[in-house]
Design a protein around this nucleic acid. Structure first.
Length: 218
DNA sequence: ACCCAGGTGGCCC
DNA sequence: GGGCCACATGGG
C-alpha cells in the first residue's frame, strides 16, 4: 500500500463513509437534480463558505429554478439578484450563465455532455470563462462521474502538512494522486470529500488573510 | 471592527 | 511561470 492509499484509509477510518456531512457532494450525487446542483454549486462555492451557497440555492429553489434548463432561460441579470448571498454575485452570475449556456446550447443535458471523452471535455470546460481547474474537475468528478481527482486548498494543505511534497501546482498534485490510486471515480469522490471534511475539522484557516481582500471596501 | 470562506480572470513582470 | 489584486456576502 502506498502513501496515498494509506492516507485514504486513515481518513476513512477517522471519519467513516462520507455522507451528507456538510453538503450534497459528500454522498456521491446520483439523481439528475443532484448532479445539476453540483454544477451550480461548483460555481457558487468559489472562495465562499458553503453556508452562503445554501442561501443562494434556497433562493433559486424558492423560484423553482433547480434545473440548468431553467437557469438558462432566467438570464444572468435575474440570476445575479438571486445568488447574492453567495458573494461575488455579479461575476458568478455571469460565470454560471456562461457554463449553463455552454452545456445547454451544445449538449442539452448532462447525460449528453457525459458522452464526451474526459480529456476533450475538460479542455472545453476550461475555456468557459469562470471555470478554472477546480471547478471543471468538480463537475467532471461529481456531476459526470469521471475519474479525475479534484485538488483544492484542503488537499494542498494536507499534502504540505504531511511533508509529502514541497512546492506543487495543481496539475502535478493531481497526477500524483491519480497515479497512486485505483482509477475509480467513486474512490476519488469519497477521498476528496474526506479531505474536505478533514480540512473543515481543523481550526486553522486555509490561507490566512486572503490575498487582495484587504481593501475590499465599498 | 476585525477575520474567514473548497477560485478565477486580468494584469504585471 | 509566478505574484498581486478585484470580485462581495454572511457568520464567528
Amino acid at each position: 500500500m502506498n502513501i496515498f492509499e494509506r492516507l485514504y484509509k486513515e481518513l476513512r477510518k477517522k471519519y467513516g463513509k462520507p455522507k451528507e456531512q456538510w453538503n450534497l457532494w459528500c454522498k456521491r450525487p446520483k439523481t439528475k437534480q443532484e448532479k445539476e446542483e453540483v454544477v451550480i454549486g461548483a460555481i457558487l462555492t468559489q472562495r465562499t463558505n458553503w453556508k452562503n451557497v445554501e442561501l443562494a440555492l434556497e433562493n433559486l429553489k424558492n423560484k423553482k429554478i433547480v434545473s440548468l434548463e431553467s437557469l438558462y432561460h432566467l438570464g444572468s441579470k435575474k440570476l445575479a439578484s438571486l445568488i447574492k448571498p453567495a458573494g461575488f454575485y455579479k461575476a458568478k452570475a455571469q460565470y454560471l450563465f456562461n457554463l449553463v449556456k455552454f452545456i445547454v446550447e451544445n449538449y442539452g443535458s448532462l447525460e449528453k455532455l457525459r458522452k464526451v471523452g474526459l480529456k476533450e471535455l475538460r479542455e472545453k470546460l476550461l475555456k468557459v470563462k469562470g471555470v478554472g481547474p477546480e471547478t471543471a474537475d468538480s463537475i467532471l468528478l461529481y456531476a459526470l462521474d469521471k475519474p479525475i481527482f479534484v485538488i483544492d486548498e484542503y488537499a494542498k494543505r494536507l499534502i504540505k502538512e504531511r511533508n509529502l511534497i514541497e512546492k506543487t501546482n495543481y496539475h502535478f498534485l493531481q497526477k500524483l494522486f491519480e497515479e497512486n490510486l485505483r482509477k475509480d471515480f467513486r474512490l476519488y469522490q469519497d477521498f476528496h470529500a474526506l479531505i474536505v471534511i478533514n480540512g473543515k475539522n481543523k481550526k486553522r484557516p486555509l490561507r490566512g488573510v486572503a490575498k487582495g481582500d484587504s481593501k475590499n471596501k465599498k
